[in-house]
Nucleic acid binder design. Structure first.
Length: 601
RNA sequence: GGUCCGGUAGCUCAGUUGGAUAGAGCAUCAGCCUUCUAAGCUGAGGGUCAUUGGUUCGAAUCCAAUCCGGAUCACCA
């Protein structure tokens, strides 16, 4: 399929075939892109890009020096407009790219706000993320999920995919019944409205209350001589919750009504949080709808011989040949287990969207679950089952260790967001640079800085790794942070606001590029590839690091060189364009992370 | 115990399919605001890349073993 937009030609994608063709001409041997590496030249050496020659020496029977010189000379001869000089050190051929290449790149893209975004590739990806339980408010772990899911969706879109963001709400089950029982027994008809609480926190408190009462009941039963195990089964609140689940499945009207009411409280709370953090979905699924979906698939699987039945009537799949275990897919009483509905949902999603890839943003404690899910889908013959991808992320821990509900160390999402925003406000006030802002503008700025810091702090870590969330470090607005990038953007914009603009001027590229100018151009040129790489790796942290490094180089550039009072008109225009393109790319990159950049801060 | 993931500076993290003297931030120390935003810039110190062996021109990266940490192996979700 032909792309509508001409594909970005990166400099490496030009050098590679040039080298291959050179080797063919010079030595009559054919190589592919995989046979040698092209890297950016390390700053301590002269040059922009480096061809690593070692892997070519043996087949060509050349010494590093010979080959480097032969190849370097040939490349310069063939493409004098692109390569201006070379040097060979050990097995490294360092090539210097002509200034005109870089200035052409700049002139072509400096105003393009869509720079780096690819034309549609016709492929469709379903991303499932967030997926909360409706019994308690969101916490720090959910934030990592939401930030990752949203960001990877946007990155995939930018790379040319059509993306459908979905969310499965775990809205039924024993957990919500616990909150319901607690409300019935102890709330005296209180509501979020009557207490002035956010709905998800209100229901979360009911859930906690259930836990406390349950613990107390168990303790008292044990005191009366009951065994611990027995007491846990006999505690009245637990029995009530279990009864409620049965009643729910039977569709008992007053239970359904209460369930709907309490879920609506939770959703109204979630909506507020989602809106603040910018999470959105194209399609919502509800477990209360999907939990029966898998049954049909189980039946089909049995007919196909994928599943088998045990004497007690439970249904299993044998995955021992794939290095896993036997796994239950339906209980002996015929009810669905967790994976049953996931099988149903996977098929459902496929039928609805005919996706090429289906991504699940779910914590790494479910790695095994998703291996099983994918295998089962394969065995059932679900088309595109190899497109099932578990975007697995590590747990968020505190410096003191794991968050524990019992110890009250769970960091609440709303609390940490409030905290970040208020510290952003305090810091902004202290610096006193935006005293002319209106109340509305200030509020927006605090949100931008506070939320940006939080997202950046969490997204900067490779998803698959566990991470430590240090509250003190997260509110630091110096160094490797969102504020640093935001500040750099504001700085660029400040220069552009003051620009004594001369629209007629066309940059000629007549004066040589200084190191920091060129360094920025090289980085800017790489942006489209960064998006592609982040999309391919499902890893927003690549973009975080890129934005930070670009901002860092830009800050050095601004400190070192004057833009508005540049040495020449030529330089001034060059630098103005660098400022514009840098601001655009920073804004674009941060946008893909869900982080806004301010005009002033 | 089986499987999977991780271990890099005091702390938090980078390190693209093996490439040049392993990099950032925080923290510590020393400089830089009559010049486009100092939420900034410049510099210094800080490393047995968990350990041992192997593969090769070359290993933080690949392989094996060991040690440490985590997850998982539920008719929970």
């Amino acid at each position: 399929m032909q792309s509508l937009k001409t594909q970005e030609m990166s400099v490496t994608s030009i050098i590679q075939p040039a080298v291959i063709s050179a080797l063919e001409q010079l030595f009559q041997q054919t190589f592919t892109a995989k046979d040698f590496q092209i890297n950016e030249t390390k700053p301590e050496f002269e040059g922009d890009y480096t061809v690593v020659l070692f892997s070519l020496l043996k087949p060509l029977k050349q010494s590093p020096d010979q080959l480097g010189k032969t190849l370097g000379n040939y490349l310069l001869e063939q493409q004098p407009a692109l390569f201006v000089s070379y040097n060979v050190i050990k097995g490294f051929l360092n090539l210097t790219i002509s200034d005109s290449y870089w200035s052409d790149m700049l002139n072509k893209h400096f105003e393009d706000k869509a720079y780096g975004k690819k034309a549609g590739n016709g492929k469709k990806i379903v991303v499932e993320y967030s997926s909360p339980n409706t019994n308690k408010p969101l916490h720090l772990g959910h934030l990592r999920n939401n930030f990752l899911g949203w960001s990877i969706s946007e990155i995939l879109k930018a790379d040319g995919y059509e993306v459908i963001k979905t969310c499965i709400s775990n809205d039924r089950g024993i957990h919500i019944c616990k909150s319901m029982v607690a409300w019935q027994w102890f709330a005296n008809g209180a509501t979020p409205e009557s207490t002035g609480m956010k709905g998800d926190h209100f229901v979360g408190d009911c859930y906690v209350m259930f836990g406390n009462v349950y613990k107390e009941e168990v303790r008292s039963l044990v005191e009366k001589g009951m065994s611990e195990e027995q007491a846990e089964k006999e505690a009245p609140v637990m029995k009530a919750a279990q009864q409620m689940l049965v009643d729910w499945e039977a569709g008992k009207p007053e239970v359904i009504t209460l369930w709907k009411t309490m879920n609506s409280w939770v959703y109204s709370g979630f909506d507020i949080t989602y809106k603040r953090i910018g999470s959105d979905f194209n399609k919502m699924y509800y477990e209360s709808d999907t939990y029966l979906l898998g049954k049909k698939l189980v039946e089909e699987g049995l007919q196909k011989g994928v599943f088998f039945t045990r004497p007690d009537n439970s249904v299993w799949v044998d995955l021992t040949a794939d290095g896993l275990d036997e796994k239950i897919v339906q209980r002996k009483d015929g009810t669905a287990v967790y994976i049953t509905q996931d099988i149903g949902l996977a098929v459902n999603k496929y039928e609805e969207f005919k996706y090429d890839q289906s991504i699940y943003v779910v914590g790494d404690e479910q790695n095994y679950h998703f291996k099983v899910l994918k295998l089962i889908c394969e065995k059932l013959g679900l088309p595109s089952s190899d497109g099932i991808y578990h975007l697995s992320y590590g747990m968020v821990e505190l410096p003191s260790g794991r968050m524990k509900t019992r110890e009250g160390t769970v960091v609440d999402a709303d609390d940490i967001i409030d905290e970040m925003i208020s510290v952003a406000a305090a810091k902004t006030a202290e610096l006193g640079k935006v005293k002319d802002f209106t109340e509305t503008e200030l509020k927006e700025l605090y949100d931008t800085i506070g939320l940006g810091a939080l997202k950046f702090f969490i997204l900067r870590v490779d998803p698959k790794k566990r991470m430590v969330f240090n509250p003190e470090e997260s509110i630091d607005f110096h160094g490797f942070t969102a504020s640093f990038v935001q500040f750099s953007h504001a700085r660029a914009k400040a220069i552009l606001r003051n620009e004594d603009s001369n629209k007629e001027y066309i940059y000629q590229g007549s004066s040589p590029l200084l190191p920091l100018e060129k360094a920025l151009l090289i980085m800017l040129e790489r942006y489209p590839q960064i998006i592609t790489q982040a999309a391919a790796d499902h890893n927003p942290s690549l973009l975080v690091i890129y934005c930070y490094e670009l901002a860092k180089t830009f800050n050095s550039f601004v400190t070192e060189h004057r833009v508005l009072k540049a040495e020449s008109a030529d330089k001034k225009e060059l630098r103005l364009r660098i400022c514009r393109m840098t601001a655009n790319v920073l804004a674009s990159g941060m946008e893909l992370l869900g982080i806004k950049v301010p005009e002033r801060m």
